[in-house]
Design a protein around this nucleic acid. Sequence first.
DNA 1: CGAAACGTTGATCGTCATCAATGACGGTGG
DNA 2: CCACCGTCATTGATGACGATCAACGTTTCG
Lengths: 214, 214
Amino acid sequence: MIKTNLKVLQLIEKIARDTANVILKTFKKGEYIVQQNEKPKIVYIIKKGITKCFITEENGKDYVLDFSSAGEIIGEVELLTHKDQYFSTIEALTILEVYVIPKVVFDQLNNEDNDFNMLIKEVLAHRLMNTSKRSSYQQIYPLLYSVLKIIYDFGQLDEHISKQDLANYLGITVRSLNRTLQELVDKKIITINEVDNFEIKNAPLLIKTIEQFY
Amino acid sequence: MIKTNLKVLQLIEKIARDTANVILKTFKKGEYIVQQNEKPKIVYIIKKGITKCFITEENGKDYVLDFSSAGEIIGEVELLTHKDQYFSTIEALTILEVYVIPKVVFDQLNNEDNDFNMLIKEVLAHRLMNTSKRSSYQQIYPLLYSVLKIIYDFGQLDEHISKQDLANYLGITVRSLNRTLQELVDKKIITINEVDNFEIKNAPLLIKTIEQFY
DNA sequence: CGAAACGTTGATCGTCATCAATGACGGTGG
DNA sequence: CCACCGTCATTGATGACGATCAACGTTTCG
């Protein structure tokens, strides 16, 4: 799933209207909004477009944490924990418009804006829950299960998410992803259509196949 | 590692002194403080003792998210996200003393106590970062790496954490954990001592072996 | 009564077969 | 040229099963 958060978007749009502290910035597709190991100074909130958030391990492999869009917050974790490095990289998968929130403004919002406070706690809590759940089932179940679950959750793949991205989300290679998708085509659970994309063909069978792991 | 948070502990102890809203409760070893799928009504903060937090998957297998002690918060994620179910179970691994914070008090603290607010955001952000990082390396690297990393982080295993718990933290069986530990004994990286416990024997070799994965 | 003998239990390990996932590499088709 | 797939060898991780061993309580017998 591509995460969004309308409540945060509305709040930041209101703040941007009221003050001159928050400005808009545009990134091109492929650009990094923040980069792992850089020093955190700014929080961003996505206005429009899609990003992927990923960790690059010391062996060079990437693990994708999530895909985000309107209303999602970037870089708040590092500022809240007073880290001197971003722990992940955020890359624009499309043209991207973001609200730029300098550290001082972020601190001020944290101290003075009760709505902002509640929202950011809610965002962090949600993310923590989702990350924990995913971590759990990806460890516990075999690959096929995870792929099925993702297909079920995503419904169909957004055109801006490449197979490489999806493979990195699963922590596997594209070759392995293709193999697994092929297996599902053979079982007539999905079909592959023209735009390099999969489509659910037989939803009940998909669910049944997921449940076979229980 | 067993997580602790002295700042939270100090804050809650001060609050407990000042008001009658926060009381102490004791759990026996093996008891559940909160249970997955139960309705969330209460937040707990650990005063003393050790817990494990784990998710039970639909196939019956457990995945341990973390081990916690003094100052760690329990159940706040569910209240902040307004979920009607706990998404994990918290079990006492020792006799456990906790501060009991009813939902109304928790809400009140969230609205009125600025220090509490900052701390809880910091806690959530830290947890999110740690969970993300762990999720990443457990997906990317083979089992041996994860085991080495855990041995490095834990130093030595707390007597209250069983091998079963540790295996569930890694998402594997005890048999597999023992096999991997045996491999490390053969390589003279660790030794197994009387109390069913491992001990780092050759730290430089341990680090070198970790770095061979890069 | 007390010490030796016995049986039970649970944890661990050796071994081997099997399954899951990857890597390599060449071929094919747009 | 690049993305994808068939194929096959290999590695990673698990499951099954029997053997071993220590811990512990109970029985037996001198």
